[in-house]
Write a protein that binds this DNA or RNA. Sequence first.
DNA 1: CGCGGGATTGAACCGCGTCAACAGATGTGG
DNA 2: CCACATCTGTTGACGCGGTTCAATCCCGCG
Lengths: 258, 258
Amino acid sequence: MIQLNSTIRLFAHRLSGAGAIPEADIEAFQDIIGPPIRFDKHDPLVQQGDRSDVLWLTAIGWALRQRVLPDGRRQISAILLPGELTDKGIVMPFGATDSVVAATELWAHAIDRNSFIALLENRPRLERALFYEELTRHAVTREWLLLLGQRNAKERVAYFFYEIFARLSAMGMLHGNTFTLPLVQSEVADIVGMSTVHFNRTLQHFRSLDLVMTDGQKVTLPRPIALAELAMFDAEIIRIARDFQARAAMVSAKFSVK
Amino acid sequence: MIQLNSTIRLFAHRLSGAGAIPEADIEAFQDIIGPPIRFDKHDPLVQQGDRSDVLWLTAIGWALRQRVLPDGRRQISAILLPGELTDKGIVMPFGATDSVVAATELWAHAIDRNSFIALLENRPRLERALFYEELTRHAVTREWLLLLGQRNAKERVAYFFYEIFARLSAMGMLHGNTFTLPLVQSEVADIVGMSTVHFNRTLQHFRSLDLVMTDGQKVTLPRPIALAELAMFDAEIIRIARDFQARAAMVSAKFSVK
DNA sequence: CGCGGGATTGAACCGCGTCAACAGATGTGG
DNA sequence: CCACATCTGTTGACGCGGTTCAATCCCGCG
């Protein structure tokens, strides 16, 4: 059996949401990714408007998908954790709609656009898995529309912390109720659509309620469920997240994903 | 040659964004759709949380995709014009994440879930077209995140009117600079994430600038480009919309899509 | 003619943004 | 190893954009 690296494992695990992917497809995918390349914090992996010939599979570190207005206002639309593709949209015949920038020092594998397209052509189950994953991600983005369009500052911040918590939990990247959040406050503010100052004040509100504790980049949520309820986190999504978590635990036990 | 109805034409046209679909695939698609069924205004086609065995292809009338919070706050995440599918996500093994409700009297064709899945299985180009369409729609949804997270009330309202204008233009559903907007103000308010009262006041602002004129459901944009600039509508998206418009004009000339 | 849904208006209020200053941590070059 | 610059977090003061609540107007319709 071919040795698969843990990034590919993570990636394949993400895609397994709607059914397993043939091992052969995963191996074929591994064949087209390049060696890991290093990006500094703030380096762009994808530039809004560009037509690039490569997309990236993140291996270590966080990246942010974002769009900016001419006057500099910025909205972050997604956080890319390890094992994610920067831009499936590269298959489309127009430029990237968003930028993707490294939020931390980051390592990512390059994937040639044409190889990627050819691979999907020959591996229908892999293509389908990517299609289904996109449907899921789109649903998450719509949930964020509800967040930005209807929820107030406290709800948004509670939602943010709980969602990060749940996602890292699903990846086995939690230590108890503590995790590392390698983002500065202005970045989080541009995720939840509020000013840095007001995010800071809202954060202090949650600190005073003992719902969020911070120590440098370490964040602890002593009562995550209380946060989720405050944020009106959708029960169905919690359920899906928990299933995910259970499967992820199995995956990490088997393959020691770090 | 098999006779295709105009709804299927519209649908196929929408999907052609990243390449033509074999005529045979389109015919096969037509084979699995049921006769048009009537929905009253406010009737749900899809209910948030439900696991249904059918999805719908809209033929006549508008529908709204929306999500609501437990306390009733609602965010509309998409407007479905004729020739759109209510919920590709039905292929996924979990319930609908959003509701879709008729915004007007509406006619739609039912599609059986299993037939739909089987069709995609056998028609890789059709499946790919749906995948690519989903990528595009997701990009639009991310643009709305930027709208709700960063733009102010005036920009949001300007953006809304221009986007509807551009989409209807692409479908040949404009009469000069005038179109029919069959939505009440509270619905538009829930699209742009603001209160009905403030939407009304913002609308009056644009009326006083002669940028938007209304007469019942008739809306006229005397200077659409000025609106687009005010909204900081992305130039690339304008370009794509114009290409679309050009192609749509050809389609409607050929097939007399109404 | 009365009813009901939607549009519009007024007034009061406040959530959140803006601006500006300061504190603390980290880094960097001399 | 200090001096200084830079970046991030925090706090205060102020005011505006937008919400809320409650009328009132308008129009189509039974």
